[in-house]
Design a protein around this nucleic acid. Structure first.
Lengths: 234, 234
DNA sequence: TGACGCTCGATTGGATCCATTGTGCGTCAT
DNA sequence: ATGACGCACAATGGATCCAATCGAGCGTCA
């Protein structure tokens, strides 16, 4: 075995690549929270042995996407409402800072792009494209600052709540959309004027409002989704 | 080889244990920033093979304590002034939140303990005990809240700047001590009164002042400490 | 004499094999 | 029939071995 086609120059170890692919799969919803992940499956699916597979699982665990129990196995992380709110509270403090650092660096063209994204979001009615555009909008606000650690931290927080944003959007799609769209345009406006304080304020209340709205629908977190202790992985 | 004395029940994989020991060593200053870390050394020193050693290095990398370059090696992370200030900016936003969540949960006895720590710090003149007490003081403020992710994030930030707090304290020990002690007592006072807003304010300005003071001494970061590309690990 | 290129050594990355552990099922006794 | 005990299987953890890669030092040539 081990065909090793080498069809692509591999930059970085295989564990990193496997982790990236697995991360994408989890974020895409292929593995919902609570899903058991077996090392051998990961290895087989991504063309590697169990060593880099295990490496990838440990990596994703440190990002909070996976929970590894010693000598037992790995599961996609499940969050309860309290943990989800915690993440939103952290975001409420961190993202305004990150946005502030980006304000003086964003070009007018980039702000135009954000405006376009905000409008495109209003027109979208598909859940997946909405999720994608929302993520794209917010993360595009953060591309210019060179603060790597802050950026990474925020990215991890987004990733950890991704399944729950999907669940929420799927069920209560139209609920807070009006406010969200309004706030996005307020952010664009503040960015255009270079008003960092206003941008911070709007973003903070945007995240806060989302958190409160989420808290109003705890039923999303009810189903622990049948945790097979040692059984299948789908 | 592989004596496997099993003198202690091991909870969790060896990689986790090795990572913990290595982390302690880095925080203790045994491996200063820029030090090369070879897998085989780690394995030998901690009684394991290179597999868990590598696992430990990847773990510490995800915590930001170590930088792993593919097919090349691992080094203890070096920060420049900008990166250090970034961490302090993040802490300035996160720790007040974490403190606020703890305010209603801290018992009067715990606040007394904090007060004792603050006083003990004033009397200490040894760098290492000062560092230890300072860390102890701040982290003891955060023990009660059940917000695991926030707590972990803050802990990682502390760990990443540890070598630079040590360097700063070693060189400019007496500089900002007066202000720091004053602020610690203000925090204790706010905690005693259960005044979350005031506690937040004081802590934020405490961290901010520390950051500004650090920025006034960029010479700490000057020495990249001779990065041996493939040489010794001491 | 300096710059380029090549080879060799050292070190990391990965695959396979073996040990360990936890789970589930079957059996037996009550 | 039900509970507890024990055995067998399956999945993880770790060690060793082999391959791949990078760096350094040396030699050659301009």
């Amino acid at each position: 075995m081990t065909v090793m086609t080498t069809d692509l120059i591999m930059h970085g170890s295989a564990g990193t690549r496997v982790a990236a692919e697995l991360r994408d799969a989890i974020l895409a919803g292929t593995y919902p929270p609570g899903t058991r992940i077996r090392q051998e499956d990961v290895a087989g699916r991504h063309g590697a042995s169990r060593v880099p597979a295990r490496e990838a699982l440990r990596l994703l665990e440190s990002e909070g996407l996976v929970k590894v129990v010693a000598n037992t196995g790995a599961w996609v992380t499940s969050l309860n409402l309290a943990e989800c709110e915690e993440i939103y509270q952290i975001r409420e403090r961190l993202e305004p800072l990150l946005l502030r650092l980006n304000v003086p660096l964003l070009t007018p063209e980039q702000v135009d792009g954000l405006d376009a994204l905000a409008h495109e979001m209003e027109r979208s009615d598909d859940v997946e494209t909405f999720l994608h555009l929302d993520r794209e909008f917010h993360l595009s606000c953060y591309t210019e600052a060179t603060t790597t650690m802050l950026h990474d931290t925020v990215l991890r927080l987004w990733n950890r709540t991704q399944p729950y944003r999907r669940a929420y959007t799927t069920v209560f799609r139209s609920a807070g959309d009006r406010s969200a769209h309004h706030e996005h345009h307020l952010i664009v406006s503040a960015l255009r004027r270079g008003d960092a304080d206003e941008a911070e304020r709007v973003l903070a209340s945007h995240i806060r409002r989302t958190r409160l709205e989420l808290a109003r629908h705890p039923e999303i977190f009810d189903a622990p989704a049948a945790q097979p202790t040692r059984a299948d992985a789908r």
